[in-house]
Design a protein around this nucleic acid. Structure first.
Ligand SMILES: NC(=O)c1ccc[n+]([C@@H]2O[C@H](COP(=O)([O-])OP(=O)(O)OC[C@H]3O[C@@H](n4cnc5c(N)ncnc54)[C@H](O)[C@@H]3O)[C@@H](O)[C@H]2O)c1
Ligand SMILES: NC(=O)c1ccc[n+]([C@@H]2O[C@H](COP(=O)([O-])OP(=O)(O)OC[C@H]3O[C@@H](n4cnc5c(N)ncnc54)[C@H](O)[C@@H]3O)[C@@H](O)[C@H]2O)c1
Lengths: 224, 224
DNA sequence: GTGACTTTGTGCGCGCCTTCACAAGGACGT
DNA sequence: ACGTCCTTGTGAAGGCGCGCACAAAGTCAC
């Protein structure tokens, strides 16, 4: 009852997660001067089945031409529109340690429609220090940034501080958070949190590696 | 027919992805001196439903005690065993730029059963330079590292080089790869690749943010 | 203008994952 | 020894996503 199936813009989560990949492929095609692509072309470029590509794109509307394919630039625009990338989003990074500095220096943000508008840290010794062209600012500056349009917060502090930082972000009105700290964050339902966890990824790889190794022998005694 | 359901160790992928989270929670409980937890305790600690917790754990075996719960340390061991974390895994990081250095400095590896055994880069100017206690080495050293037990490769090079680096890793025998570059890697089926993509995560957040904003007004013209 | 060809958009069945609900099982007090 | 209470482990149902296969639709050559 929460959504009328007929009126609903219901793009499945699984599809939303793939749209950025299609978009990247389309930009690549566009850079190569290719004006039109088939679902099969997109499939090989993204490693997704062509039927899935077509079904995903069909959620956005009918932008393909039968017998020909999709206009690269037009489709890229439509995906950008669906994802909400037709205007820039303002991002703040909290925690200017090893990871925070690497993120701040990352050029992949600007080219994808995201603008870093603030670098924050609790450590007073870092305040005023310039990282990637922006000064590190105290946490108290958060509220002002939201007034300037800040929408997305990135947490790159130690796990112990993550919940505290999250609470501060939420209290000033940030409703989208990307969390790099290995903790589960508690937030109101209106806040969307996504988590990137390096250790988890490695542990999943370890599981598969063990599975493959176990098929042969248990091996792996490397007494150097 | 590829696997006998009775003999099969078939742990669903979705479950494998949650096991590291349970493990982290269990370590936390153990540090707090808690010896026994219920599925409900684990549920609140991880943000997963208690029924799902029990079903996930049931794939590992019957390690719970009805009416009481699970022994924290014993369950932690069983999860570690299932994930293949009962021995250390050797990891190499390729690409010692902003991100690679942050990863090399990250202390969360060692505490989770992973050991960084090599830092590699193509740039000869970096060779010999010490990062986080390890010297940066040329790509040619890869083969030797595999001989010493290297199992997992981390790619932190620009997107253009990622496929080339991937091919080199695969050719020396690495079958588990964690890729930070925004590219789809082509590999033989025996190689497991997991991808961490910052831009994708931000774009998914943007989608949800737009959705929420759209419910009110289209807002968001911040003409500074 | 017509026919052959290409590629989209989607209806449908299948399998995996989630969620509910409860019987089975074990501890603990008396 | 026995009953009560608590929590596990799981059968069954529902939902979601995937992939096949094909009709619909439009292009292009002649
Ligand atoms: N370094 C990596 O490669 C890496 C990889 C994966 C995950 N992580 C996670 O990312 C987080 C940051 O890692 P790091 O290596 O950059 O740590 P770090 O210790 O180098 O940096 C943490 C920074 O956060 C700041 N900080 C601490 N508490 C704060 C607070 N309450 N408010 C604002 N700022 C605060 C500190 O002053 C410091 O500058 C950690 O949770 C870590 O587990 C790091
Ligand atoms: N910096 C970030 O926060 C961040 C975040 C997300 C994703 N990424 C991605 O991670 C990758 C690395 O980012 P970065 O900021 O560290 O880049 P960077 O340019 O700072 O570092 C890249 C390093 O890779 C090395 N390299 C290049 N080609 C190589 C090859 N063929 N073999 C071995 N080494 C090679 C270079 O010498 C350089 O040291 C990029 O693909 C980027 O898109 C970075």
């Amino acid at each position: 009852m929460s959504a009328d199936p007929s009126t609903r813009r219901g793009i499945p989560d699984a599809t939303v997660a793939r749209l950025p990949e299609y978009l990247r492929a389309l930009h690549s095609f566009s850079d190569d001067g290719i004006a039109s692509v088939s679902s099969e072309d997109l499939a090989v470029a993204t490693g997704v089945g062509s039927a899935k590509v077509r079904k995903d794109l069909s959620y956005l509307g009918s932008y393909g031409i039968r017998g020909v394919g999709y206009d690269v630039d037009h489709l890229a625009y439509q995906i950008s529109f669906a994802l909400g990338l037709t205007h820039e989003w303002a991002v703040a990074i909290v925690g200017m340690g090893n990871l925070g500095r690497a993120l701040a220096a990352y050029r992949g943000f600007a080219t994808k429609g995201f603008r870093i508008v603030g670098l924050l840290d609790q450590d007073t010794r870092l305040h005023g220090q310039v990282v990637a062209g922006l000064p590190v600012r105290p946490m108290a500056d958060l509220a002002g940034l939201v007034g300037e349009g800040l929408a997305i917060g990135v947490i790159a502090t130690p796990a112990e501080s993550a919940q505290d930082v999250c609470d501060q972000l939420v209290s000033v009105g940030v409703r989208s958070i990307l969390n790099f700290a290995p903790t589960v964050l508690a937030t109101p339902p209106s806040v969307v949190v996504r988590k990137v966890d390096l250790s988890t990824e490695l542990q999943i790889l370890a599981f598969h590696e063990q599975r493959k190794a176990g098929r042969a022998v248990t091996l792996a005694e490397v007494s150097s």
